[in-house]
Design a protein around this nucleic acid. Structure first.
Lengths: 231, 231
DNA sequence: CGAAAGAAGTGATATATGTCAATTAAATAT
DNA sequence: ATATTTAATTGACATATATCACTTCTTTCG
Protein backbone atom coordinates (compact mmCIF):
# COMPACT_ATOMS: atom_id res chain seq x y z
CA UNK A 1 0.00 0.00 0.00
CA UNK A 2 1.22 3.45 -0.84
CA UNK A 3 1.42 5.93 2.00
CA UNK A 4 0.26 9.50 2.28
CA UNK A 5 2.32 12.24 0.68
CA UNK A 6 1.67 15.56 -1.03
CA UNK A 7 0.70 15.44 -4.67
CA UNK A 8 2.74 17.73 -6.83
CA UNK A 9 1.84 17.27 -10.45
CA UNK A 10 0.73 14.70 -12.96
CA UNK A 11 3.89 14.93 -15.01
CA UNK A 12 5.91 12.75 -12.72
CA UNK A 13 3.19 11.22 -10.61
CA UNK A 14 4.21 7.71 -9.65
CA UNK A 15 0.64 6.56 -9.09
CA UNK A 16 -0.68 7.87 -12.39
CA UNK A 17 -3.03 5.75 -14.46
CA UNK A 18 -1.07 3.61 -16.92
CA UNK A 19 -2.97 5.09 -19.84
CA UNK A 20 -1.67 8.58 -19.09
CA UNK A 21 1.58 7.47 -20.67
CA UNK A 22 -0.10 7.85 -24.06
CA UNK A 23 -0.57 11.57 -23.49
CA UNK A 24 1.68 14.31 -24.81
CA UNK A 25 3.31 16.72 -22.39
CA UNK A 26 0.76 19.37 -23.28
CA UNK A 27 -2.12 17.01 -22.66
CA UNK A 28 -0.65 15.96 -19.35
CA UNK A 29 -0.23 19.58 -18.38
CA UNK A 30 -3.86 20.17 -19.25
CA UNK A 31 -4.87 17.37 -16.92
CA UNK A 32 -2.66 18.70 -14.19
CA UNK A 33 -4.23 22.15 -14.46
CA UNK A 34 -7.72 20.76 -14.30
CA UNK A 35 -7.56 18.29 -11.48
CA UNK A 36 -8.98 18.72 -8.01
CA UNK A 37 -7.63 17.03 -4.94
CA UNK A 38 -9.66 15.81 -2.02
CA UNK A 39 -8.87 13.65 1.00
CA UNK A 40 -11.36 11.25 2.53
CA UNK A 41 -11.51 9.60 5.92
CA UNK A 42 -12.42 5.92 6.38
CA UNK A 43 -16.12 5.39 5.76
CA UNK A 44 -16.60 8.55 3.73
CA UNK A 45 -18.24 8.28 0.35
CA UNK A 46 -16.09 9.33 -2.60
CA UNK A 47 -18.64 8.68 -5.33
CA UNK A 48 -22.33 8.04 -4.90
CA UNK A 49 -24.25 5.69 -7.17
CA UNK A 50 -26.85 7.57 -9.19
CA UNK A 51 -25.22 10.97 -8.83
CA UNK A 52 -24.28 12.87 -12.00
CA UNK A 53 -20.96 11.65 -13.30
CA UNK A 54 -18.97 14.77 -13.92
CA UNK A 55 -15.56 13.45 -12.97
CA UNK A 56 -13.33 10.44 -13.06
CA UNK A 57 -11.44 9.71 -9.87
CA UNK A 58 -7.93 8.49 -9.22
CA UNK A 59 -6.60 7.46 -5.83
CA UNK A 60 -3.20 8.84 -4.96
CA UNK A 61 -3.10 6.80 -1.77
CA UNK A 62 -5.26 4.49 0.30
CA UNK A 63 -7.88 1.88 -0.51
CA UNK A 64 -11.56 2.26 -1.22
CA UNK A 65 -14.37 -0.19 -1.84
CA UNK A 66 -16.44 -0.06 -5.01
CA UNK A 67 -19.97 -1.26 -4.42
CA UNK A 68 -23.38 -1.38 -5.98
CA UNK A 69 -26.37 -0.44 -3.87
CA UNK A 70 -28.88 -3.06 -4.87
CA UNK A 71 -32.39 -4.04 -3.82
CA UNK A 72 -33.46 -2.88 -0.33
CA UNK A 73 -30.11 -1.03 -0.32
CA UNK A 74 -28.34 -4.33 0.10
CA UNK A 75 -24.79 -3.70 -1.03
CA UNK A 76 -22.72 -5.70 -3.39
CA UNK A 77 -18.99 -5.06 -3.31
CA UNK A 78 -17.59 -5.20 -6.83
CA UNK A 79 -13.98 -4.74 -5.86
CA UNK A 80 -11.33 -2.49 -4.42
CA UNK A 81 -10.08 0.82 -5.77
CA UNK A 82 -6.34 1.29 -5.56
CA UNK A 83 -3.80 3.92 -6.63
CA UNK A 84 -3.04 3.74 -10.38
CA UNK A 85 -6.60 2.60 -11.14
CA UNK A 86 -9.05 4.71 -13.08
CA UNK A 87 -12.35 4.84 -11.24
CA UNK A 88 -15.08 5.38 -13.75
CA UNK A 89 -18.09 3.10 -14.05
CA UNK A 90 -19.75 1.98 -17.26
CA UNK A 91 -22.82 4.07 -16.51
CA UNK A 92 -20.83 7.21 -17.17
CA UNK A 93 -20.71 6.74 -20.94
CA UNK A 94 -24.30 5.65 -21.07
CA UNK A 95 -26.44 7.78 -18.82
CA UNK A 96 -23.94 10.17 -17.24
CA UNK A 97 -24.64 8.78 -13.80
CA UNK A 98 -22.35 6.80 -11.56
CA UNK A 99 -23.35 3.17 -11.72
CA UNK A 100 -21.74 2.39 -8.39
CA UNK A 101 -20.63 4.01 -5.16
CA UNK A 102 -17.07 4.25 -3.87
CA UNK A 103 -16.26 4.62 -0.19
CA UNK A 104 -12.91 5.06 1.53
CA UNK A 105 -11.68 2.19 3.69
CA UNK A 106 -8.49 3.94 4.80
CA UNK A 107 -7.53 7.57 4.53
CA UNK A 108 -7.72 8.18 0.79
CA UNK A 109 -6.17 10.97 -1.25
CA UNK A 110 -7.83 11.51 -4.60
CA UNK A 111 -7.61 13.49 -7.78
CA UNK A 112 -10.83 14.34 -9.58
CA UNK A 113 -10.57 14.95 -13.32
CA UNK A 114 -13.56 16.18 -15.26
CA UNK A 115 -15.17 13.71 -17.58
CA UNK A 116 -15.37 16.39 -20.23
CA UNK A 117 -11.62 16.63 -20.31
CA UNK A 118 -11.31 12.86 -20.50
CA UNK A 119 -13.72 12.86 -23.39
CA UNK A 120 -11.76 15.56 -25.14
CA UNK A 121 -8.60 13.48 -24.84
CA UNK A 122 -10.39 10.46 -26.21
CA UNK A 123 -11.40 12.52 -29.21
CA UNK A 124 -7.97 13.94 -29.91
CA UNK A 125 -5.67 11.09 -28.95
CA UNK A 126 -6.23 7.68 -30.51
CA UNK A 127 -3.85 5.81 -28.28
CA UNK A 128 -5.60 7.22 -25.25
CA UNK A 129 -8.97 6.18 -26.64
CA UNK A 130 -7.72 2.66 -27.20
CA UNK A 131 -6.32 2.57 -23.70
CA UNK A 132 -9.70 3.64 -22.38
CA UNK A 133 -11.34 0.86 -24.35
CA UNK A 134 -8.86 -1.63 -22.96
CA UNK A 135 -9.39 -0.46 -19.43
CA UNK A 136 -13.14 -0.75 -19.71
CA UNK A 137 -12.80 -4.15 -21.34
CA UNK A 138 -10.59 -5.46 -18.61
CA UNK A 139 -13.06 -4.35 -15.98
CA UNK A 140 -15.89 -5.86 -17.92
CA UNK A 141 -13.99 -9.10 -18.23
CA UNK A 142 -13.41 -9.17 -14.50
CA UNK A 143 -17.12 -8.75 -13.86
CA UNK A 144 -17.88 -11.62 -16.26
CA UNK A 145 -15.61 -13.84 -14.22
CA UNK A 146 -17.26 -12.68 -11.04
CA UNK A 147 -20.62 -13.58 -12.49
CA UNK A 148 -19.46 -17.14 -13.10
CA UNK A 149 -17.78 -17.53 -9.76
CA UNK A 150 -20.75 -16.14 -7.83
CA UNK A 151 -23.24 -18.36 -9.58
CA UNK A 152 -21.19 -21.52 -9.84
CA UNK A 153 -18.87 -21.65 -6.85
CA UNK A 154 -19.95 -22.62 -3.38
CA UNK A 155 -19.13 -20.56 -0.31
CA UNK A 156 -15.62 -21.89 0.41
CA UNK A 157 -14.61 -21.30 -3.22
CA UNK A 158 -15.88 -17.76 -3.16
CA UNK A 159 -14.12 -16.93 0.10
CA UNK A 160 -10.92 -18.55 -1.16
CA UNK A 161 -11.12 -16.44 -4.29
CA UNK A 162 -11.57 -13.26 -2.30
CA UNK A 163 -8.63 -14.07 -0.03
CA UNK A 164 -6.42 -14.78 -3.02
CA UNK A 165 -7.44 -11.47 -4.53
CA UNK A 166 -6.33 -9.66 -1.39
CA UNK A 167 -3.13 -11.62 -1.21
CA UNK A 168 -2.16 -11.50 -4.90
CA UNK A 169 -3.54 -8.19 -6.11
CA UNK A 170 -4.04 -5.84 -3.20
CA UNK A 171 -1.35 -6.56 -0.63
CA UNK A 172 1.05 -8.82 -2.55
CA UNK A 173 1.75 -10.73 0.60
CA UNK A 174 0.56 -13.94 2.23
CA UNK A 175 -0.22 -12.12 5.42
CA UNK A 176 -2.30 -9.00 5.49
CA UNK A 177 -4.66 -6.77 7.40
CA UNK A 178 -8.22 -7.80 6.52
CA UNK A 179 -9.48 -4.37 5.65
CA UNK A 180 -13.07 -5.51 5.19
CA UNK A 181 -15.38 -6.49 8.01
CA UNK A 182 -16.97 -9.95 7.91
CA UNK A 183 -20.14 -8.21 6.84
CA UNK A 184 -18.34 -6.59 3.90
CA UNK A 185 -16.56 -9.80 2.98
CA UNK A 186 -20.04 -11.25 2.75
CA UNK A 187 -21.19 -8.40 0.53
CA UNK A 188 -18.30 -9.21 -1.77
CA UNK A 189 -18.83 -12.96 -1.92
CA UNK A 190 -22.61 -12.90 -1.66
CA UNK A 191 -23.10 -14.57 1.66
CA UNK A 192 -24.30 -13.76 5.18
CA UNK A 193 -21.69 -12.50 7.64
CA UNK A 194 -22.29 -15.54 9.84
CA UNK A 195 -21.44 -17.79 6.92
CA UNK A 196 -18.22 -15.85 6.32
CA UNK A 197 -17.24 -16.49 9.92
CA UNK A 198 -18.01 -20.19 9.63
CA UNK A 199 -16.11 -20.69 6.38
CA UNK A 200 -13.09 -18.78 7.67
CA UNK A 201 -13.11 -21.00 10.73
CA UNK A 202 -13.37 -24.07 8.55
CA UNK A 203 -10.40 -22.93 6.46
CA UNK A 204 -8.50 -22.36 9.65
CA UNK A 205 -9.46 -25.80 10.93
CA UNK A 206 -8.03 -27.48 7.84
CA UNK A 207 -4.78 -25.55 8.13
CA UNK A 208 -5.24 -23.43 5.03
CA UNK A 209 -5.24 -20.04 6.70
CA UNK A 210 -4.77 -18.35 10.01
CA UNK A 211 -7.69 -16.01 10.60
CA UNK A 212 -7.21 -13.44 13.30
CA UNK A 213 -9.62 -10.71 14.22
CA UNK A 214 -8.44 -8.38 11.52
CA UNK A 215 -5.40 -10.12 10.15
CA UNK A 216 -5.25 -13.04 7.80
CA UNK A 217 -2.31 -15.29 7.06
CA UNK A 218 -2.37 -17.74 4.21
CA UNK A 219 -0.59 -20.90 5.27
CA UNK A 220 -1.28 -23.31 2.42
CA UNK A 221 -1.68 -21.22 -0.70
CA UNK A 222 -1.81 -24.18 -3.06
CA UNK A 223 -4.72 -25.65 -1.17
CA UNK A 224 -6.44 -22.27 -1.14
CA UNK A 225 -6.00 -22.03 -4.93
CA UNK A 226 -7.48 -25.47 -5.31
CA UNK A 227 -10.49 -24.57 -3.18
CA UNK A 228 -10.96 -21.41 -5.20
CA UNK A 229 -10.77 -23.22 -8.53
CA UNK A 230 -12.77 -26.30 -7.64
CA UNK A 231 -15.51 -24.03 -6.36
CA UNK B 1 -37.73 -11.06 -35.61
CA UNK B 2 -36.22 -10.29 -38.98
CA UNK B 3 -36.52 -12.97 -41.64
CA UNK B 4 -33.99 -14.38 -44.02
CA UNK B 5 -33.01 -12.42 -47.11
CA UNK B 6 -29.90 -11.93 -49.19
CA UNK B 7 -27.40 -9.41 -47.91
CA UNK B 8 -26.37 -6.92 -50.50
CA UNK B 9 -24.10 -4.33 -49.02
CA UNK B 10 -23.40 -2.43 -45.84
CA UNK B 11 -24.22 0.93 -47.38
CA UNK B 12 -27.95 0.50 -47.04
CA UNK B 13 -28.13 -2.43 -44.68
CA UNK B 14 -31.19 -2.08 -42.50
CA UNK B 15 -29.77 -4.25 -39.74
CA UNK B 16 -26.45 -2.47 -39.52
CA UNK B 17 -24.95 -1.64 -36.16
CA UNK B 18 -26.06 1.80 -34.99
CA UNK B 19 -22.47 2.95 -34.68
CA UNK B 20 -21.85 2.41 -38.41
CA UNK B 21 -23.73 5.67 -38.94
CA UNK B 22 -20.60 7.47 -37.76
CA UNK B 23 -18.61 6.12 -40.70
CA UNK B 24 -17.89 7.95 -43.93
CA UNK B 25 -18.95 6.43 -47.22
CA UNK B 26 -15.41 5.34 -47.88
CA UNK B 27 -15.12 3.67 -44.52
CA UNK B 28 -18.42 1.91 -45.01
CA UNK B 29 -17.27 0.72 -48.41
CA UNK B 30 -14.11 -0.61 -46.79
CA UNK B 31 -16.21 -2.60 -44.36
CA UNK B 32 -18.38 -3.90 -47.13
CA UNK B 33 -15.37 -5.13 -49.07
CA UNK B 34 -13.93 -6.89 -46.06
CA UNK B 35 -16.87 -8.69 -44.62
CA UNK B 36 -17.56 -12.39 -44.85
CA UNK B 37 -20.98 -13.92 -44.71
CA UNK B 38 -21.88 -17.21 -43.11
CA UNK B 39 -25.16 -18.91 -42.29
CA UNK B 40 -25.64 -21.08 -39.23
CA UNK B 41 -28.24 -23.67 -38.38
CA UNK B 42 -29.86 -23.93 -34.93
CA UNK B 43 -27.40 -25.30 -32.41
CA UNK B 44 -24.31 -24.42 -34.40
CA UNK B 45 -21.58 -22.46 -32.69
CA UNK B 46 -20.84 -19.07 -34.19
CA UNK B 47 -18.06 -18.06 -31.81
CA UNK B 48 -16.24 -20.29 -29.38
CA UNK B 49 -15.03 -19.05 -26.03
CA UNK B 50 -11.25 -19.09 -25.82
CA UNK B 51 -10.67 -19.10 -29.57
CA UNK B 52 -8.56 -16.31 -31.09
CA UNK B 53 -10.69 -13.25 -31.62
CA UNK B 54 -9.99 -12.19 -35.17
CA UNK B 55 -13.43 -10.92 -36.07
CA UNK B 56 -16.45 -9.13 -34.77
CA UNK B 57 -19.79 -10.64 -35.72
CA UNK B 58 -23.09 -9.08 -36.73
CA UNK B 59 -26.31 -10.97 -37.18
CA UNK B 60 -28.25 -10.11 -40.30
CA UNK B 61 -31.12 -12.34 -39.23
CA UNK B 62 -32.05 -14.81 -36.52
CA UNK B 63 -31.32 -15.08 -32.82
CA UNK B 64 -28.33 -16.54 -31.03
CA UNK B 65 -27.47 -17.11 -27.39
CA UNK B 66 -24.37 -15.63 -25.82
CA UNK B 67 -23.02 -17.79 -23.03
CA UNK B 68 -20.03 -18.32 -20.84
CA UNK B 69 -18.72 -21.83 -20.38
CA UNK B 70 -17.94 -21.90 -16.70
CA UNK B 71 -16.74 -24.48 -14.20
CA UNK B 72 -17.26 -28.11 -15.18
CA UNK B 73 -18.47 -26.68 -18.51
CA UNK B 74 -21.61 -25.48 -16.80
CA UNK B 75 -23.00 -22.78 -19.04
CA UNK B 76 -24.16 -19.36 -18.07
CA UNK B 77 -26.30 -17.53 -20.62
CA UNK B 78 -25.40 -13.86 -20.64
CA UNK B 79 -28.01 -12.79 -23.14
CA UNK B 80 -29.32 -12.95 -26.66
CA UNK B 81 -27.64 -11.74 -29.83
CA UNK B 82 -29.95 -9.98 -32.27
CA UNK B 83 -29.61 -8.20 -35.61
CA UNK B 84 -28.21 -4.66 -35.21
CA UNK B 85 -26.08 -5.76 -32.22
CA UNK B 86 -22.33 -5.84 -32.30
CA UNK B 87 -21.07 -9.15 -30.97
CA UNK B 88 -17.66 -8.65 -29.49
CA UNK B 89 -16.78 -9.61 -25.95
CA UNK B 90 -14.58 -7.66 -23.57
CA UNK B 91 -11.84 -10.28 -23.79
CA UNK B 92 -11.10 -9.20 -27.33
CA UNK B 93 -9.44 -5.96 -26.36
CA UNK B 94 -7.61 -7.58 -23.49
CA UNK B 95 -6.26 -10.94 -24.54
CA UNK B 96 -7.43 -11.34 -28.10
CA UNK B 97 -9.57 -14.31 -27.18
CA UNK B 98 -13.31 -14.58 -27.18
CA UNK B 99 -14.53 -14.36 -23.62
CA UNK B 100 -17.78 -16.11 -24.43
CA UNK B 101 -19.37 -18.47 -26.93
CA UNK B 102 -22.24 -17.65 -29.25
CA UNK B 103 -24.56 -20.33 -30.64
CA UNK B 104 -27.42 -20.02 -33.12
CA UNK B 105 -30.91 -20.65 -31.77
CA UNK B 106 -32.64 -20.16 -35.12
CA UNK B 107 -31.18 -20.03 -38.59
CA UNK B 108 -28.73 -17.17 -38.34
CA UNK B 109 -27.17 -15.13 -41.12
CA UNK B 110 -23.99 -13.37 -40.07
CA UNK B 111 -21.37 -10.95 -41.27
CA UNK B 112 -17.84 -11.34 -39.94
CA UNK B 113 -15.70 -8.23 -39.92
CA UNK B 114 -12.06 -8.44 -38.99
CA UNK B 115 -11.09 -6.96 -35.68
CA UNK B 116 -8.09 -5.34 -37.33
CA UNK B 117 -10.37 -3.32 -39.52
CA UNK B 118 -12.50 -2.35 -36.53
CA UNK B 119 -9.37 -1.26 -34.73
CA UNK B 120 -8.28 0.78 -37.71
CA UNK B 121 -11.63 2.57 -37.73
CA UNK B 122 -11.34 3.27 -34.03
CA UNK B 123 -7.97 4.86 -34.68
CA UNK B 124 -9.06 7.04 -37.58
CA UNK B 125 -12.62 7.96 -36.61
CA UNK B 126 -13.22 9.53 -33.22
CA UNK B 127 -16.99 9.30 -33.33
CA UNK B 128 -16.71 5.62 -34.11
CA UNK B 129 -14.34 5.13 -31.19
CA UNK B 130 -16.73 6.88 -28.85
CA UNK B 131 -19.57 4.75 -30.14
CA UNK B 132 -17.50 1.67 -29.44
CA UNK B 133 -16.88 2.88 -25.91
CA UNK B 134 -20.57 3.51 -25.43
CA UNK B 135 -21.49 0.10 -26.73
CA UNK B 136 -19.05 -1.65 -24.44
CA UNK B 137 -20.22 0.48 -21.53
CA UNK B 138 -23.83 -0.37 -22.10
CA UNK B 139 -23.02 -4.06 -22.15
CA UNK B 140 -20.95 -3.72 -19.06
CA UNK B 141 -23.76 -1.88 -17.32
CA UNK B 142 -26.17 -4.64 -18.23
CA UNK B 143 -23.87 -7.21 -16.70
CA UNK B 144 -23.64 -5.17 -13.51
CA UNK B 145 -27.39 -5.24 -13.23
CA UNK B 146 -27.40 -8.96 -13.86
CA UNK B 147 -24.91 -9.41 -11.07
CA UNK B 148 -27.24 -7.68 -8.65
CA UNK B 149 -30.33 -9.47 -9.81
CA UNK B 150 -28.67 -12.88 -9.72
CA UNK B 151 -27.31 -12.40 -6.24
CA UNK B 152 -30.22 -10.54 -4.68
CA UNK B 153 -33.40 -11.73 -6.33
CA UNK B 154 -35.09 -15.01 -5.57
CA UNK B 155 -36.15 -17.45 -8.26
CA UNK B 156 -39.54 -15.94 -9.16
CA UNK B 157 -37.95 -12.51 -9.54
CA UNK B 158 -35.24 -13.84 -11.81
CA UNK B 159 -37.68 -15.72 -14.02
CA UNK B 160 -39.97 -12.69 -14.17
CA UNK B 161 -37.03 -10.57 -15.24
CA UNK B 162 -36.09 -13.00 -17.99
CA UNK B 163 -39.66 -13.16 -19.30
CA UNK B 164 -39.88 -9.37 -19.36
CA UNK B 165 -36.62 -9.23 -21.28
CA UNK B 166 -38.05 -11.54 -23.94
CA UNK B 167 -41.29 -9.62 -24.06
CA UNK B 168 -39.89 -6.09 -24.02
CA UNK B 169 -36.57 -6.38 -25.80
CA UNK B 170 -36.53 -9.44 -27.99
CA UNK B 171 -40.05 -9.98 -29.32
CA UNK B 172 -41.79 -6.72 -28.38
CA UNK B 173 -44.97 -8.63 -27.72
CA UNK B 174 -46.77 -10.08 -24.72
CA UNK B 175 -47.00 -13.45 -26.39
CA UNK B 176 -43.99 -15.14 -27.86
CA UNK B 177 -42.28 -18.37 -28.78
CA UNK B 178 -40.03 -19.39 -25.89
CA UNK B 179 -36.92 -19.94 -27.88
CA UNK B 180 -34.94 -21.29 -24.93
CA UNK B 181 -35.46 -24.69 -23.38
CA UNK B 182 -36.23 -24.87 -19.65
CA UNK B 183 -32.65 -25.98 -19.21
CA UNK B 184 -31.38 -22.87 -20.99
CA UNK B 185 -33.80 -20.63 -19.15
CA UNK B 186 -32.20 -22.04 -16.04
CA UNK B 187 -28.71 -21.31 -17.36
CA UNK B 188 -29.81 -17.72 -17.84
CA UNK B 189 -31.41 -17.27 -14.42
CA UNK B 190 -29.04 -19.51 -12.51
CA UNK B 191 -31.40 -22.25 -11.45
CA UNK B 192 -32.06 -25.92 -12.09
CA UNK B 193 -34.38 -26.75 -14.99
CA UNK B 194 -36.80 -28.39 -12.54
CA UNK B 195 -37.01 -25.16 -10.62
CA UNK B 196 -37.74 -23.25 -13.83
CA UNK B 197 -40.65 -25.58 -14.48
CA UNK B 198 -41.99 -25.14 -10.97
CA UNK B 199 -41.75 -21.34 -10.97
CA UNK B 200 -43.39 -21.11 -14.39
CA UNK B 201 -46.21 -23.28 -13.11
CA UNK B 202 -46.52 -21.11 -10.04
CA UNK B 203 -46.72 -17.96 -12.19
CA UNK B 204 -49.37 -19.68 -14.24
CA UNK B 205 -51.27 -20.69 -11.13
CA UNK B 206 -51.45 -17.07 -9.93
CA UNK B 207 -52.70 -15.88 -13.30
CA UNK B 208 -49.60 -13.93 -14.27
CA UNK B 209 -48.67 -15.87 -17.38
CA UNK B 210 -49.84 -18.64 -19.61
CA UNK B 211 -46.98 -21.09 -20.09
CA UNK B 212 -47.33 -23.49 -22.96
CA UNK B 213 -44.75 -25.99 -24.05
CA UNK B 214 -42.86 -23.53 -26.17
CA UNK B 215 -45.08 -20.48 -26.12
CA UNK B 216 -45.49 -17.95 -23.35
CA UNK B 217 -48.20 -15.39 -22.94
CA UNK B 218 -47.96 -12.65 -20.37
CA UNK B 219 -51.39 -12.05 -18.89
CA UNK B 220 -50.72 -9.66 -16.02
CA UNK B 221 -47.66 -7.65 -16.97
CA UNK B 222 -47.93 -5.28 -14.02
CA UNK B 223 -47.81 -8.16 -11.61
CA UNK B 224 -44.88 -9.67 -13.50
CA UNK B 225 -43.03 -6.36 -13.25
CA UNK B 226 -43.72 -6.26 -9.54
CA UNK B 227 -42.39 -9.76 -9.07
CA UNK B 228 -39.30 -8.88 -11.07
CA UNK B 229 -38.63 -5.73 -9.08
CA UNK B 230 -39.45 -7.02 -5.62
CA UNK B 231 -37.12 -9.93 -6.24
C1' DC C 1 -9.32 3.46 32.78
C1' DG C 2 -13.87 1.75 32.23
C1' DA C 3 -18.17 1.97 29.78
C1' DA C 4 -20.49 1.82 25.53
C1' DA C 5 -20.72 0.60 20.88
C1' DG C 6 -19.71 -2.19 17.27
C1' DA C 7 -17.88 -6.48 15.37
C1' DA C 8 -17.15 -11.30 15.63
C1' DG C 9 -18.49 -15.79 16.84
C1' DT C 10 -21.96 -19.60 18.02
C1' DG C 11 -25.83 -22.83 18.09
C1' DA C 12 -30.46 -23.81 16.82
C1' DT C 13 -33.68 -23.57 13.32
C1' DA C 14 -35.91 -22.25 8.92
C1' DT C 15 -35.99 -22.17 3.92
C1' DA C 16 -34.83 -21.81 -0.73
C1' DT C 17 -33.14 -24.44 -4.07
C1' DG C 18 -30.76 -28.52 -6.00
C1' DT C 19 -30.60 -33.52 -6.99
C1' DC C 20 -32.47 -37.96 -8.22
C1' DA C 21 -35.51 -41.05 -10.23
C1' DA C 22 -39.42 -41.75 -12.66
C1' DT C 23 -43.22 -40.51 -15.92
C1' DT C 24 -45.30 -38.05 -19.58
C1' DA C 25 -45.39 -35.17 -23.56
C1' DA C 26 -43.32 -33.33 -27.91
C1' DA C 27 -40.36 -33.38 -31.69
C1' DT C 28 -37.70 -35.86 -35.08
C1' DA C 29 -36.35 -39.37 -37.88
C1' DT C 30 -37.29 -43.65 -40.20
C1' DA D 1 -47.56 -42.87 -39.25
C1' DT D 2 -44.77 -45.18 -35.88
C1' DA D 3 -40.52 -45.53 -33.39
C1' DT D 4 -36.96 -43.12 -31.13
C1' DT D 5 -35.04 -39.47 -29.03
C1' DT D 6 -35.22 -35.37 -26.50
C1' DA D 7 -37.40 -32.23 -23.43
C1' DA D 8 -40.82 -31.23 -19.81
C1' DT D 9 -42.92 -32.40 -15.64
C1' DT D 10 -43.55 -34.40 -11.03
C1' DG D 11 -42.74 -35.89 -6.29
C1' DA D 12 -39.64 -37.18 -2.65
C1' DC D 13 -35.61 -36.02 -0.51
C1' DA D 14 -31.04 -33.82 0.41
C1' DT D 15 -28.34 -29.78 1.40
C1' DA D 16 -26.36 -25.35 1.22
C1' DT D 17 -27.09 -21.22 3.13
C1' DA D 18 -29.86 -17.61 5.57
C1' DT D 19 -31.92 -16.01 9.77
C1' DC D 20 -32.44 -15.34 14.67
C1' DA D 21 -31.09 -14.70 19.17
C1' DC D 22 -27.42 -14.50 21.99
C1' DT D 23 -22.68 -14.33 23.85
C1' DT D 24 -18.07 -12.86 23.64
C1' DC D 25 -14.48 -10.16 21.98
C1' DT D 26 -12.30 -5.49 20.30
C1' DT D 27 -12.11 -0.90 19.79
C1' DT D 28 -13.26 3.65 20.87
C1' DC D 29 -14.25 7.41 23.46
C1' DG D 30 -15.74 10.01 27.57
Amino acid sequence: MIGERPIHSCENCIVAWKNFSTLTNDELKLINENRYEATFKPGEIILKQGSPATSAVFLASGIAKIYIEGLDSKNFILGMALPTNLILGPGVHVMHRHSYSVAALTIVQTCFISFELINQLIAQNTAFALGMLEDLSLKSYTVHNKLVSLTQKKMPGRIAEALLMFSDTIFRSDEFEMILSRQELGEMTNMAKESVVRILKELEGTGVIDAGYSRIKIIDKEKLRLISERG
